[in-house]
Design a protein around this nucleic acid. Sequence first.
DNA 1: CTGTTAGCGCTTTCAC
DNA 2: GTGAAAGCGCTAACAG
Lengths: 340, 340
Amino acid sequence: MTERRASDAGAPTMRDVAARAGVSAMTVSRVLKDDARVSEASRERVLRAVDALGYRRNETARRLRLGSSGMIVLIVTNLANPFYSRLALGVQEVASEHGLRVVLSNTAEEYERERSAVADFASRQMDGMIVVPAGSNHRHLTPSALRGMPVVLASRPPAGMDADCVLVDDFGGAEEATRQLLADGHRKIGFLGNPPALYTGAERFRGYWSAHEAAGVEPDERHIRRGLADVGTAERAATALLADPEPPTALFCTNNRLTKGAIRAVRTLGRPVALAGFDDFDLAEVLGLPLTIVSYDADEIGRRAAQMLIDRINDRSEAPLPARRTVVPTHVIRYGGAPA
Amino acid sequence: MTERRASDAGAPTMRDVAARAGVSAMTVSRVLKDDARVSEASRERVLRAVDALGYRRNETARRLRLGSSGMIVLIVTNLANPFYSRLALGVQEVASEHGLRVVLSNTAEEYERERSAVADFASRQMDGMIVVPAGSNHRHLTPSALRGMPVVLASRPPAGMDADCVLVDDFGGAEEATRQLLADGHRKIGFLGNPPALYTGAERFRGYWSAHEAAGVEPDERHIRRGLADVGTAERAATALLADPEPPTALFCTNNRLTKGAIRAVRTLGRPVALAGFDDFDLAEVLGLPLTIVSYDADEIGRRAAQMLIDRINDRSEAPLPARRTVVPTHVIRYGGAPA
DNA sequence: CTGTTAGCGCTTTCAC
DNA sequence: GTGAAAGCGCTAACAG
């Protein structure tokens, strides 16, 4: 029957350590923070007690007191897309350098999931969040909705509000790839695009169109398909385009899934068609198809987004930082077309 | 100068809501929990006050009181591998059905990162964790090291301890694929393997060997390479094997990265070589190579692991549940080899 | 250098 | 049905 009041649930508390070391809880706290001036003697005894008891500081309690969770959230639309898993790795890299943990959430492109995740994480006192928004309604991401919790958007820009964001040079990449196809002599370049309501979809289409204008070539509207979502729809769309009496000799695809659909269609067809598209992928070089890929560093998007977020979290100035925007460059890779 | 003591940092607290609704904090708590018997009148007033103030319950404080975080951790070795991002999606799917958030951590196969992540998450009062262990030292995952926090291992079994785990039928899948190659008449089947110290590496090799024994064929040790880590090393190893005066006519690869290396080697060589390997991947069917793939549902591993973990978290029985083990089946897919 | 006091925001317990 | 008191485990702000 001692004075020691260990929590019955098992884990020793700071008090237990203090009692064992013969000091106050405050001294234990200081030792663990590695911060204040504590005598070498006390430090030793505390550390010994910590060890003996197998004590681990309760971060939940600590964070309640400190008023921050030490975690940031990353909300993506589709973790199965390698683009987003790379982005996540970039975020983790920078976050961990700053002692922040990353909580990851997947929305499957569903707005309602995003909204509820955002609300939930706000309740959990997250230090900030990086969001790849699923829709174009960003009401739930406004400063007032989030009570000042910092947000950075990735991949898609803010709509109807101001916020930091990291984008890809969607326009430039699409324009460059299209220009190369035109330079190769293609005059009928089909377009397989994701929904025009998406920023990336709109920008990439704009790039495709702009390259045509610059070359004085008029794209054939009949060879343009937008609003494609996955490999299957892209494959069918490509097959249909290529069955045209005057079929395109090349296809431009706005993302990796659509490119894969187009590849399947071309393989099935057996006739050589030049392919171009966003997002590099494994084994592109062994396909034996003429492939023009717009590539970029997805990790870098994550790293930049995390850095922006951390800058904002650490910002203690009176006047809030103005919203910043950064664009990750693209580059075009050409894979050879050893004819099959 | 009112009695209301709003926290200066901004966010309203339960007290603020209570004051505005003219009730006690307890009543607010009950309404929010949707749990206790509260008069309809009080409920209304509380909800109105919540709305007016834009109040959000502070989960950190709540969790401190409750003694659990409402979050589980998933620690993987390589999120860039689609296998693990699918696994993560499976975990999220089941976790969110149970109102649990998932914190994701990547170890890049480094033991030290894993160890420190585990310790940190234990401090954060996570409700449980799912780990794909990076090494074979699992000391930091023992019940005593974790003070009873539930753990489930995925992909690799526990070493030197007992724990729930979800595995893939590595042996069976490798055996089946090898058997099919043998049935095709191959008698010289090379082996490109990941490190034998890894469970998957050992099991897949065992399956390869077992199929040979069953067929009365002796594998040629000179055609066996183990300890391969990435696409590059696999490509070089495959190239070397195929340069043998009596080269293998088929290659078995223990994972997707090694298969990709082998594909590159075979493409470069130009001579037809049958390929088999673990892990399905996009576009396998359009490569135009004879490809035998051992496939399995990576999401399912995540779902099962999450379910096991939740069972354990919810287990309140005196005698702890015995450690359980479940094996996810594999199936073999054969992609046609339209000769290049 | 060290300890005491107070309280982060919530919920459990126990009265009424 | 409702509220007052107590405290989860920790740390900032003061003393000394």
